[in-house]
Amino acid sequence: MTYLHNIGAYFLMIVEMFRKPTKWSVMKKLIFKDIDDLIIGSLGIIAFISFFVGGVITIQTALNINNPLIPKYLVGFATKQSIILEFAPTFTSIIMAGKVGSFITSSIGTMRVTEQIDALEVMGINSLNYLVLPKTIALFLYPFAIAIGMFLGILGGMAACVFGGYTSLEDYVLGIQTDFEAFHIIYSFIKTFVFAFLLATIPSFHGYYMKGGALEVGKASTTSFVWTSVVIILINYILTDMMLGS
């Protein structure tokens, strides 16, 4: 029953988020601040992880292809497919559920504990619109961060391939050009948009409706990470089946 109650409350929160809009001059500043906090502030970790995971995927693929009948360019092809289809949109989003999600839950949760949300409500401000909507809009730039992640992942694979001596640069480049399907990119960005919405709203829900003190803020951050990850994995499966399944 609690799960059903929370799912209902989550959707009501989303509806409420669009009511009684905050003044545009104020909202604009909030959106830019959230872009800085949530997107620009995450680029470093996304770049670092993407580059090295791209390298690891390449090495593991190369080491598992021992058969001389399999062409060497397959290493580049497998790296590209893994990064574009799965690593960049999904695994990066799981990592962001930890980084961005915890930040959102703890900052909104602390505002709840210290009565700052009550202060907004008493002033007649729709606190959900003021706090959650700017984060949701800011995270619509998340696909740009993921695009950078894709590029650096493939670049990391190339660096590992060439400097590790697994294949030649020509084979790797041929691999990433082989069987290129634009729809895979579209599929990947559609997933990323959905994940961006989940990354903004699920942690906000856990922060906004938390009860208690400082200890509960920590618990809410952990719960928010778990639920955001679970929902991302489930939605990933559903979207993949819908868009790529036969």
Binding site: T114, E115, Q116, D118, A119
Partner: peptide, 10 residues
């Protein structure tokens, strides 16, 4: 409104 903990936006 003046809240018990002031509730200033930190």
């Amino acid at each position: 409104m003046v809240f018990q903990g002031s509730a200033l936006f930190d």
